[in-house]
Design a protein around this nucleic acid. Sequence first.
DNA 1: TTCCGCGATATGTCTAGGCATATTATAATT
DNA 2: AATTATAATATGCCTAGACATATCGCGGAA
Lengths: 248, 248
Amino acid sequence: MIRDDSPPPARSNAVPRYREIYEALRQKIVSGEWPAGYRLPSEHELARSFGCARMTIGKALGALADQRLVTRRRRAGTTVNMPRPQESVLEIHDIEAELLAAGVSYAYQSLERRVRRASTADANILGVPSGTPVLALTGLHRAGGRPHALEERLINLHAVPEARAERFSGISPGRWLLQRIPWTEAEHQIGALNADAAIARWLAIRRNTACLTIERNTWRDEQRITHVRVIYPCDQHRLVARFRYGPT
Amino acid sequence: MIRDDSPPPARSNAVPRYREIYEALRQKIVSGEWPAGYRLPSEHELARSFGCARMTIGKALGALADQRLVTRRRRAGTTVNMPRPQESVLEIHDIEAELLAAGVSYAYQSLERRVRRASTADANILGVPSGTPVLALTGLHRAGGRPHALEERLINLHAVPEARAERFSGISPGRWLLQRIPWTEAEHQIGALNADAAIARWLAIRRNTACLTIERNTWRDEQRITHVRVIYPCDQHRLVARFRYGPT
DNA sequence: TTCCGCGATATGTCTAGGCATATTATAATT
DNA sequence: AATTATAATATGCCTAGACATATCGCGGAA
């Protein structure tokens, strides 16, 4: 017996099939038609009803799972998740690039630069054994000639020995590091503080002005690279983060 | 001629092949052996050298591209990216769940509740036409009996008509909404401010104390649901975000 | 010299099967 | 009744091949 082995019509739509399916299923979920806990049809059933191979369905369901809209377990099937905790992707840009993109002139001014063996405090902050050689930097980011942010940084000289020879007059250490050292993990902590006298002087703001602080730790496969705290006056900077349950 | 059609040995390692390959390639990149701009071997070549099907290579490379470690373009091939702008996934938790998880008692105290037609200011903040019915809420989150955060919220009553009947005495509007309304997009803005007299009184802090503010806008497929601004005293809360170039 | 068309190449997507494995439901046994 | 073996099911991973499509580079024409 001869079966119809003609290939399916050459769908050359711009949007791939798996994405159409992803969108269709996503719509069921975000519209509430399939509420939390609902169990989706099996891959085989969906493949039949959408008229495609099981692997194509698998790709669509995999994308939904990546977005955490559903959970997939063998034999148990695919079920709709509870709405998640509010989650966003926060991009913390290089200050210099950000300002230049906005058409503002930028300069980094080094205020202090010291190589030392890590004190107990340094060791705690940077997460290295005390006594490890570190480079401690303080500097000011200027935008349009005016103070924009104050930066306090510790660099692990075991991880970045080249830094010992770099003066960082002119180039910001953040950019310098970013261009040289690939990092594999980063942690940010965001907080607020009242400017003390020293901070207020450097940033040319009044004492007690609220400032946003961003602390960042970076790792390169287990090894700590640097710790930095950047202090922005409250009116200079906002962090924006956006998340969407998206067309991926 | 008879070819060896015996299937490949039944690798039943716990780690799938595509992930092994992903890790191997990732290692080349983060170690610096393949620097930014380096062009990877083609899928065919990799498939040959790893001894697997092209699709398996495609899955590994796709994962690297998801992590933005590489860029893939037809004909041009797959190339290693420059290190990215610092990016992190920020989870902004439900305050109530967070405090309960920490073993602290939690309560929401409604301070003000008004239904009104959106003023121009409301309209700007919430992104709806002025005149749209909105619910304006002010409330205090208490932890262990003490003030923890102040919340100012606008809810679009066209999007959430059920909210008109809800008193929000006891239950926090954030939690109430999260349980009822699936959202598809969220934007967060994080900033700092000095507490004014009203804020200071409610939060039982001194005037001018630095506070962290989180503003959140949520959408459900184009439609604005709510805008909220939460104000935390600087010593009460930090935001932590973490990112890793990961084993996915 | 410059521009245009064409072939080569690498990825993007898809199919139709296959075996592996976790988990659940059911039947059998103690 | 409680426990254990077994079968069924749904996902997870994989292959070998196919066509589609973007784009790079080259050679010929204006």
